[in-house]
Design a protein around this nucleic acid. Sequence first.
RNA 1: GCCGACUUAGCUCAGUGGUAGAGCAUUCGCUUCACACGCGAGGGGCCAGAAGUUCAAAUCUUCUAGUCGGCACCA
Length: 844
Amino acid sequence: MELAKAYDPREAERSHYQRWEANGFFAPEINEDPTAEAYSIVIPPPNVTGSLHMGHALQHTLMDVLTRWKRMQGYRTLFLIGVDHAGISTQLMVTRQLKKDEHKTPQDIGREAFTTRVWAWKEQYGGEITRQIRREGLSVDWSRERFTMDPQLSIAVRNVFVTLYKEGWIYRGTRIVNWCPRDKTVLSDLEVKDEKAKDGKLYYLRYPLSVPPAVAGGLVRPKGGAKSPYGNLQPPATAGGSDYVTVATTRPETMLGDTAVAVNPNDERYKNLIGRTIALPLTDREIPIIADEYVESEFGTGAVKITPAHDPNDWEIGERHGLEKLVVMNDDATMNAAAGPEFAGLDRYEAREKVIAKFDELGLLEKIEDYDVTLPVCERCKTVIEPILSEQWFAKMEQMRDLALGLMREKDLPHFFPEVPHKKVYTTWLENLRDWTISRQLWWGHQIPAWYDNDGNVYVARTADEAYEQAGTTDLTQDPDVLDTWFSSALWPFSTLGWTGQQVQSPKSKVQSEEAGQSLTLDIGPWPLDLKTFYPTDVLITGRDIIFLWVSRMVMTGLKFIGERPFDDVVITGTVLDKNGQRMSKTKGNGIDPLDVFEKYGVDATRMTLAGSATGVDFAWRDERVESFRNFANKIWNATRFCLMNSDGASVSSEFKLQLSSDAENQPTEVGTPSLADRWIVSRLKKTARAVNHALETYQFHEAVQLLYHFFWDDFCDWYIELKKDEITAGDADASSRILSILEQALRMLHPFMPYLTEELWQKLPGVSNDLHNAAYRKADVTIMLADFPICDATLIDEQAEAEMSAVIELITKVRNIRSEMNIKPSEKVAVHIAANADFQKIS
RNA sequence: GCCGACUUAGCUCAGUGGUAGAGCAUUCGCUUCACACGCGAGGGGCCAGAAGUUCAAAUCUUCUAGUCGGCACCA
């Protein structure tokens, strides 16, 4: 058999995936061993609107390496794939399409028609990401593919919501929330990012006291002419002695909603003003001057305007002092009627300009300073968030937070890789956890299972019928909002395995739950088989950006509803940066499309590149690096090509036949008497297997890649093949069988990383059969995927052979060095005379 | 403001309390019958700076500088 001269990845990538999938190799059911231990990984569900990026490719590669490795070890493996409905992204995408195609808004066509459209969109375009995942070669079980809005998963969501509501962990309340005026929905704190304002300003506004001070000398009259109804006032020596108070603000437009001015109770400058009132300019309102410890005297003027309806801290102060909460903005960040006729309808930034202009006109604008402000922006559309007062659904996190913290403190789980800094960051975040805003003003998602009667009473139930029963009427309206996408993602590790919230817990988890002091509120029914088999999953691999959004919440809901952690280990990958070390982003246009890289260098080379980066460390993408792994793939191809060119009468020996004694004279094996090189390569092979297994156990993927690269290229190709070349080309079938057997084992170890190439080559080796499969897969069709993953056999480690071989290598290198330095042509033969230590003289 | 990470060969990065590593780039030599996506032989680093612990530190501690990140605040 003769292979092409160079490896063409496209050839190998064409057929194998289909065959693997069609033969059920990806499904756990392929495992014939009823006692096999389970190994499971759930994929972080990519957004249905998403397309594959390098971050995915990295995470996916690592998950697939682990899955393939464990599968080859005989575990009953499940690599579960699914897609997230991605509420906001998807709704925006379809809204945009609707506008483009029909010039209509969602409101024009109504909720039902709109969601129908989104489903249609999902059917048509939503498969893009999963098609790309197939291309990556992931051994995911497509028969168990899930979508966060599958009926079963939606039932789970409802049950969780209802349970938490009944237990008092979910409530509806009016609070200051993060409002995105563009998406017109509330966002959780985690969906808000900080952005530096380009030209931030701090505006100093003068608020006149409504009654002149009784004390003499209060006013500082300037020499110039009067300009405003309040007189032309100059900044006084002490603010407290004047007839106005200066406040500093970065958002002047919110002054229209001010309901107080606050000062620190110990601030001497303002002490005598506490209790006085201010005639709020541009309005006809009088607002009090109050004292609150929150105010820092050192900052700004030491006096703070208080806008309880548009600032979270002001809201707190408002609560403490019983202030009115005046909402002056609409949901699109324009001013509303309460802002006054002059401002109503203006955009917040127009209103800002106008407020400033008016203050200036009135002589009340003291000064404007440049000021570095970081603005909260919507993580998705980058619109500046407006904190507004709004009625929303919230989840109280105390109980679930304590469950997660308890798991960390008592069992040190989950274990983060790398542990620093993630363990601490995760724990600290939990300790400071605040309530979670879970409602979203969208139509695409899980509609909140709460119904209202005409009096505004709320009925939370799993179904409309249950709500009708509770209310004693069918005249109810369901809450129009949907749940945060992360609410359903939080249930992913168990909702995908069949848990709907209607089953009782397993006896095992029940005990654990009672230990944790948890009450169980779940209904009857057996645990689904998959849940019993595959939960908890073994490891979660994801990026650091969703540790809080997703990882922590899975831990919490897993403990709360299943009574067990969702996974032991969490591998946090680094970020793939562009070649200049910059984050890849759509706006910068510096992203590298994994599919292009697959096309250019092959999937296997790409996987090696990704797995070859150190766990958790950011790294700059370099095409040169992939190129080197493409070259490596070609090297493997050609090494195999060589072995096959001379394989007449030879065949791969199963592992036991490969065994070689270090005491070669006494124990010749079926494949002839092993030479030093034979004993050496087997020893190297076994040490490599040991190290690779260990590296993978500890998620040191790059270590495994290095080991395999070095073993294959340096040990196997540069030395072993070269040393055996004469025997092999002379047609020594024993030597050929031996080299094929080493090659075969190497391919197995490489398979989790380079699935296509290794399958392509392995199938061509003489003598491969499902006898080489792990014992759990003896009936399955022949594939390297199910071959037994090499392990270390300590009896085959031969330190003596390795030491002797090192000496040989050193010697040969020195001779070559001399030849090179003396410019002796390779074709010229020279006689070499060697003086060696007694120990090494016997080495031949 | 708090917490943290990183700073190693020209580039991108591994690495360990005890003679500095890889890939790429580079130099020299090779149409050696698997592979020029190759083969062979080289050159190249006082491991950011300073102090300390130690028989021994690039590796541990402290400080400094630069880069980056998370959180909080942001009147």
